[in-house]
Design a protein around this nucleic acid. Sequence first.
DNA 1: CTGTTAGCGCATTCAG
DNA 2: CTGAATGCGCTAACAG
Lengths: 371, 371
Amino acid sequence: MRKRKSNGRPTIADVAFRAGVGAITVSRALRHPDQVSEALRKTIGDAVRELDYVPNLNARALASSHSNVVAVLVPSLTQNIFSDVLRGIYDGVEDSGLRIEIANTRYNVEVEERQIFEILRHEPSAIIVSGTEQTAASRKMLENAGCPVIQIMDITDDPIHKVIGFSHFHAGKAMTQHLLDVGYQRVAFFSGWMNSRSQGRLAGFVEALEEAGIYDPKLICEMGNEKPSASQGSIKDYHQFSTARMGRELMLRALENGPRIDAVFCNNDVLALGALFACASCQVEVPRQMGIAGFNDFDYMEAAQPAMSSVRIHRWQCGYQAMQAVRNELNGEPVGERIVDLGFEVVKRGSTDRNGTLGVPPPGDIPFTLS
Amino acid sequence: MRKRKSNGRPTIADVAFRAGVGAITVSRALRHPDQVSEALRKTIGDAVRELDYVPNLNARALASSHSNVVAVLVPSLTQNIFSDVLRGIYDGVEDSGLRIEIANTRYNVEVEERQIFEILRHEPSAIIVSGTEQTAASRKMLENAGCPVIQIMDITDDPIHKVIGFSHFHAGKAMTQHLLDVGYQRVAFFSGWMNSRSQGRLAGFVEALEEAGIYDPKLICEMGNEKPSASQGSIKDYHQFSTARMGRELMLRALENGPRIDAVFCNNDVLALGALFACASCQVEVPRQMGIAGFNDFDYMEAAQPAMSSVRIHRWQCGYQAMQAVRNELNGEPVGERIVDLGFEVVKRGSTDRNGTLGVPPPGDIPFTLS
DNA sequence: CTGTTAGCGCATTCAG
DNA sequence: CTGAATGCGCTAACAG
């Protein structure tokens, strides 16, 4: 007899034999314990433990024709913003029996299309995708994926299936409004590489200024519109585009010879950091002579000197709730709200406290030891 | 006949029928084109395209009993440092037919053990694990995993299989030595939550000071030794430990009532950022009155005011090269060097230019547009 | 170079 | 609540 190699591990048949039951009963005892009698459940549990039986997930997926893989598409693995989202997803998947498969779309719609195609090969049980602006082709693939698709980190009236996120437009507008509210007159928008979500923020910025009757296109300071895709083989160039440096340079130029501005809304916190340092190097007082606001509210914003205003968004929650939604649906529960707006928070701190009237709280205490 | 549901997609048999060959020939044409005649290869290729055939990876894994899954264990998804590593890994996996499965060990050895156990269920084709200090149980599981195991981001004389990284001890010592070289006398070590790699850096720090005859345990300023594992369900507390804030607080205390110090080596860049802001808020001049150095060399270090010294490590390369090593081995190539030291680089900038003698280069130019 | 046969390990279907 | 038979889609092994 030519036997196949088989990796020697105990199979469900071994467990069944040992427990003196049929294989299917073992299968059921493991997946739907309530469908198996108390006694058998125990016998089987013992056999599993004695043999160190571990179900083969590939066989399970093949036989049941569902993979229990949740595919996650993120535009970047570098930016902290998606690190937090991923952490939420991983925190949310625990003890679910689901596997996560991450694809990096590199902020590139063509790459995204290809990744979606690849991902569909694995017949995922669900898909979590960042953003709501997929190409027509991508959207079609996702609609036909035959599984729940959760869009996150943005919001839309017309989700493929379900969306959990917030409005970048309103977030951008709200922060800009804050800058205007405290009395800044010429507010600039700094950005590095733009993506569709950045564009939303920018649109909010523009609308706020227009409503105030002080919009001027010269106030939009950006570096470019497309992020170069990471060059696969090249090892050296991944460090060459420094966002912080862009923030610094943009501010230096604005101070030197650009249009006179008295505040800047930075498309992200790192840019704001760079802008702050530029002000420091030029003895420009923040917030008196220059207001600075960021976006994301990473932890260093609170620790900066002065503490920096930013828009806090719920990254972790996006991931976590997306995972909960997936789990619910795979458990047969109804979709529920198809549009979940997690909102955002305009965090006002010293860097935009133009009149000293915000009453920004002093830094709280953190336990520490100085040995 | 009771037919199984089957998801309707074309199978290899459909392709074989259409191409008028046996299923196995299709299989071979797809995986080892050189084992199939030119003519058949073309016919089969056409059939594949016409049917939109996509091989089922679960069936493939089951039949061949190897999964083509590369399991990656990282201690954290939050810190940029591992984002870069992951990016390297994803950049390195393209067009390899391999899948990546990430597990988050949360800097917790028990979690790591559990994750390794879980991961082995998937019978990975290779494992990439961060660090070299696994528990005995973990190490044993990895040794018996029956697949290549690449340890990364640290170095050891005794790798499980292969290690690609660098010495945290030497990196810590080298930066400390730099601080001493430029004339700082009382150099402190700031750290937040410590892990085994941080400990290595600290040990290097201590040795450098000891060799200089100026070691004093009071110079070690840390917040604690264990990172609390992320609380799964809790949505609010993930933001409560701010590394930047720790850096700030540690520096404030050091300036107030701690031992007099004139420089600080921060265990990471965010801590250094916080320390820099603390100095700014107290009118302490950097680098004259206080030298500050970080670790990792994230991009904002160069943009800070003053630019901050740090230790540049090769995060992306660690991931990328680990992936290359995996691919080579899965292709049957020999392991090669079992210990690959990628080294590090002490980047000296303004924040430690105590005597103005480093000749730190001025900021280079970055293309930009100010519309 | 190509085909035949016989599983990989599990879950679905249908029957008790 | 339990079991027997069957097949998920693919590939290793063995022929030709």
